[in-house]
């Protein structure tokens, strides 16, 4: 099995296929190494029972692209602490969907790419949704936003930015966005656009709970004006919502800068 795990790991990263690496960092079997892919796995953490528990935990973490240390008993028992296994997910980049091929979208797409997202720009108007206007996007799609979103792959790590600020496009695509488990849904528009849009969504039967999932008007309150500044405000909000931070100034508060996520948030499936 010489080079087996390393070369598979290397290949998976190259192909951007999801893979988790599990390492026994404390307890019996120290240094044990496993590669866990969605369909199979390689290597061992010490024994079959423990391997089974590690594979299960690793697949769960891999789904959300999370990296964590999990504890098990020597034979993979839960609620025991003998073996510490560091599980690192290498998931494909999360997706950012940008609807509305306006200048703001170009800046948001560039910043999304900068943050490591796979960026997909979509607009129904072929004149606007062009490669030339969005050189940094991974995909530029000419389609009705709501119809496109129906078939798009959206998971908890996905970000949806609705920048059309035209109710004709906004309302249907936001309704579709709420049907996904996207981690961030933002909608651009003035206060007036926002009020108008909120009223229309309510007419369409969208509940207050669902409405609270939409960041509207989109972005942090940093006084952004230009498309680039607005993209920064949106990027800041995306990060803040993911980490559960408030988005204010560090100078204005005390405490740890990288306050870790509460355990309940980072490992919802921990038993």
């Amino acid at each position: 099995m010489v080079m087996g795990i390393l070369s598979r790991w290397h290949a998976a990263l190259k192909e951007q296929s999801p893979v988790a690496m599990a390492t026994v960092i404390e307890g019996p079997g120290l240094g044990g190494k496993m590669l866990v892919a969605p369909e199979d796995h390689e290597g061992s953490a010490g024994n079959q029972d423990l391997d089974k528990a590690v594979v299960e935990a690793a697949r769960g973490l891999l789904e959300g692209g999370r990296t964590e240390t999990r504890h098990f008993g020597p034979r993979g028992q839960r609620r025991m602490e003998d073996v510490a296994v560091f599980i690192q997910s290498f998931a494909p980049p999360p997706k950012m969907y940008v609807f509305g091929a306006i200048d703001f979208a170009s800046a948001v797409a560039r910043l999304g790419k900068f943050m490591g997202y796979r960026v997909i720009v979509c607009d129904a108007r072929p004149v606007f949704a062009t490669r030339e206007r969005f050189p940094s996007a991974d995909e530029v799609v000419v389609a009705w936003p709501d119809e496109f979103l129906k078939t798009a792959e959206v998971d908890r790590r996905s970000v949806i930015c609705v920048l059309t600020h035209d109710p004709k496009f906004d309302v249907p695509v936001l309704k579709e966005a709420l049907a996904t488990e996207a981690g961030y849904i933002g909608a651009m528009g003035s206060r007036r656009t926002h009020d108008n849009r909120t009223a229309r969504l309510k007419e369409e039967g969208v509940t207050d709970d669902d409405l609270s999932r939409i960041s509207s008007p989109i972005g942090l309150d940093i006084g952004a004006r230009t498309p680039e500044e607005t993209a920064v405000a949106i990027a800041g909000e995306i990060i803040a919502l993911r980490t559960g931070h408030s988005g204010g100034r560090l100078a204005g508060r005390s405490g740890a800068i990288h306050a870790p996520e509460p355990e309940t948030v980072s490992s919802p499936d921990a038993k």
């Binding site: 080079m3 390393l6 070369s7 790991w9 290397h10 990263l13 190259k14 390492t23 960092i25 240390t69 560091f86 690192q88 290498f90 740890a256 800068i257 990288h258 870790p260």
Partner: peptide, 29 residues
């Protein structure tokens, strides 16, 4: 592409021994 894994794979292909150091936990800041 992960430059660390890339490099380690290259070293091993060239027959060189290698060690990997990974941050597994960060407390406070």
């Amino acid at each position: 592409m992960n430059p660390v894994v890339d490099k380690v794979a290259n070293w091993r292909e060239e027959g060189k021994q290698a060690a990997l150091a990974t941050v597994v936990k960060v407390e406070r800041s």
